[in-house]
Amino acid sequence: MGVLLVATLISIYEIPKMKKQNMKRDFILFSCVLFLASTIATLHVNGVTISNPISGLRAIFSPIGLGIENFFMEKGQ
């Protein structure tokens, strides 16, 4: 509920300004980002586990990172 309240407040604050200046692209971007943020927040608040986007990065990079770490560690001995 709190999340939706925040999202509504942000919309009330921003949308009239954008309408006045006729910013269509701004409005689309604004609603996309706001929708994404409030969806994730609502899910998170309700205890749905959201897969951590970092774990994907970790799968790609940890061989490189650990390789560098080991390189320095072995040479240091």
Binding site: I10, Y13, E14, M23, R25, D26, L29, V33, L34, A37
Partner: peptide
């Protein structure tokens, strides 16, 4: 977009 200010709050 014309202005960056509207997306500061959602981002």
């Amino acid at each position: 977009a014309k202005d960056y200010r509207p997306i500061t709050l959602p981002l």
